[in-house]
Amino acid sequence: MSALLDIRNLSVALKGGPRLLRSVSLAVAAGEVRGLVGESGAGKSMIGKALLGILPRSVEVVDGQILLDGDDLLRLPPAERRRRIGQRAALIPQDPLTALNPAHRVGPQITDRLVDILRWPRARAEARALDLLAEVHIPDPGRVMKSYPHELSGGMRQRVLIASAFAAEPALIVADEPTTALDVTVQKQILRLIAEMQARHHTALLFVTHDLGVVSKVCQNLSVLYAGKVVEDTTVRDFFRAPGHPYSAALLAATPKYTDPDGSLTPVPEAVIAAVRAEVEAAETEWQHGRR
């Protein structure tokens, strides 16, 4: 069976500089929830950005394929690629406070994709938006549709963004640390909401996070990223039982446990980092050689 999303040997680099993603391969099946974990700077957000076509201007894809529904997005003409992404994929962003346009009302920010890209009649798009706002447990959806973002709380805005992500019934949603910017009390609700929406719509979810606790609650499979490379690709169950890669094991050991509140925090051992580093540097030297 071919996967919904199939990323093959994707390399992304700073223009004229080092690689940020090094031959990353990653597949997501229809309806699958895959966690993408790693520490800051590991490149986990970069994968979602490359796939959605929103890499920063200083960064470019240097190698590889991103197959969505079997077509390589990187080989499609730009307009067709944008349309395809808008139709089949969506993003739940990290910071709900900055992800809504302050100059537009909330309603049009949910319906815009439906009306402008998918050519739905406005009335149908608005009815759909009202349904979605009810689905994400927003009381009085009609009023919220007419509100400006600054009139809503952070949690409410993230609910709006989740509704917006599901608007076009996409096959794949990238959730880029969707709870990081939220209040701890709201985090749990939003997490539960994303899981609930995913289950109802059978949408595949690529869940980018640095929080293994979140992964254990939401995901079925996960990819562990370190220094721009996937070091482990496994099911959540196997990962927590017996992580395969030494870095994964160290990462798991470093997670603070509620069962042992007095225990000191365990950093990832220097030896593990050094081993992975050496591996990275060897690969990078080889890549640079191949480029010349």
């Binding site: 959605l52 944008r82 992404i85 808008g86 993003l91 992800a99 815009d112 994709r113 402008d116 890209i117």
Partner: peptide, 9 residues
């Protein structure tokens, strides 16, 4: 950035 992912040029 979010608007870009929606398919706008």
């Amino acid at each position: 950035t979010l608007a870009r992912t929606k398919g706008y040029g």
